[in-house]
Amino acid sequence: MAVFVDLNISHTVDKKRLQNIIETAAHLGYSTVAINHVVDLQQKKQEIGKPKCVSELFDQFPIVQGKSRPIKVLNRLTLVVSEASHFRPTNEFKSYDVVAVFPKTEKLFHAACMSFDVDIICIAVTEKQPFYFKRPPVNGAIDRGVFFEISYVPAIKDSTMRRYTISNSLSLMETCKGKNVIVSSGAEKPLELRGPYDIANLGLLFGLSEGDAKAAVSTNCRAVLLHGETRKTALGIIHTMKKIEPTAERREEEEAPVLKRARTEAV
């Protein structure tokens, strides 16, 4: 059975609220969630910071309903780009599990589909799509294993946004035929989250078939995560990683020599 994934939980500095959202997601039956860090490259001097270690969030991660396993929390980066020169793959990407791009113009959409090294392309849901989805870039993205993302929270909040969400997704489905689509939340509050089966049903409204709609919250998301993992590897074959020690232990290690030094001095 496929597990359910929500790849878009908005990052907030408010740790309590973030914990609340993740607890709700676990209760609703999501096995994996990704915390989304948005960087708008239009504004100057935007730094892509390293994400916080997710293990700092909880001492013990909440148990997923019906799975008796703790929820998995990942980091995701979303870049909002309006000019091609803004998109520069950097080393910071490697500290994120998933990288998404939100292209503002048709030219960038084309570039994102055909060449950008990303996992997800976001589709506008808060405004009318400013360009048409053309067949060649969309097919190119499907061939490369890049997924299109529709987030549903704006549709819950506002009826105008709801119209945009549905019309934009319908026009996307016209070109991609329901392939390579994921549906995620973009939630900022626990009450904005919906259960995975609710979203599978909502997918029918977005023009997905029953099977595609369920895949949009389960198997397609898994494919995104695997695609994200290959970025850290050499062609998905060789993978090197540094051994990371938890910060608490490291601090102890740093302190230990000082103590030792003090003792030797005393002697």
Binding site: L28, I156, R162, L191, E192, L193, D198, N201, L202, L205
Partner: peptide
């Protein structure tokens, strides 16, 4: 499908956030 999707997209009751599980 209609009823379920309407319940999913229900987000406020008397301009106060709510959710249907």
């Amino acid at each position: 499908v209609k009823l379920w999707s309407a319940l999913t997209l229900l987000g406020s009751y008397h301009s106060e956030p709510c959710a249907v599980r």
